[in-house]
């Protein structure tokens, strides 16, 4: 008797089709959204706590510079508190005889300016008078009176930093 071959019941696996249309959809939409809205910048600008920056509609890219934050409570330079203000005014002990120049800020900025000049002369071997004017990145509270801000601007100008970049918030698109 011929052996009957056992026909094994093949377990026919049902093919599982994965529909990735929606995944592709989400990925491409997310990608285009990120490309449009993201900015790639190495400069980190985080305003100090409690400070509300002024708003402006113009957009310009910030350049790397010394960061100065001025609120009615304190003056912060490169994330270090330099002067504590008294009710929105600079204490007289921190001002020079002219009543306008902030002593510790001037010393710091003069040092930084000298460093830039020396670096420029060493690296570029150029006349230091051709050095492009260095700038400051200024973050200040939107309600700060100009009477307080002017001390900062004056001190920066006489220390060689006559150009300013005022950090502002731009309304969302």
């Amino acid at each position: 008797m011929a052996l009957k071959k056992k026909k094994s019941k093949k377990m026919t696996s049902t093919g599982t089709d994965v529909n990735i249309t929606s995944l592709m959809d989400v990925l491409t939409v997310l990608l285009f959204f990120l490309i449009k809205s993201a900015t790639v910048s190495s400069l980190e600008l985080t305003p100090p706590k409690g400070m509300k920056l002024p708003t402006a509609e113009m957009k310009e890219e910030p350049k790397e510079a010394i960061k100065i934050a001025l609120s009615k409570d304190m003056l912060v330079v490169d994330e270090k508190t330099m002067v504590k203000l008294d009710a929105g005014r600079f204490p007289a002990s921190y001002l020079m005889e002219d009543g306008r120049t902030i002593k510790p800020l001037k010393e710091f900025l003069v040092q930084e300016y000298q460093k830039k000049k020396d670096f420029y002369k060493d690296v570029a071997d150029e006349n230091v008078d051709l050095l492009p004017p260095p700038t400051l990145l200024i973050q200040a509270d939107h309600k700060l009176p100009f009477g307080t801000l002017k001390h900062l601007l004056h001190t920066a100008a006489i220390s060689g930093f006559a150009d300013y970049q005022f950090v502002v918030e731009t309304p969302g698109e």
Partner: peptide, 10 residues
Amino acid sequence: MTFSNLSILK
């Protein structure tokens, strides 16, 4: 990327 709505005025 950075999500930043900060800009500058010179």
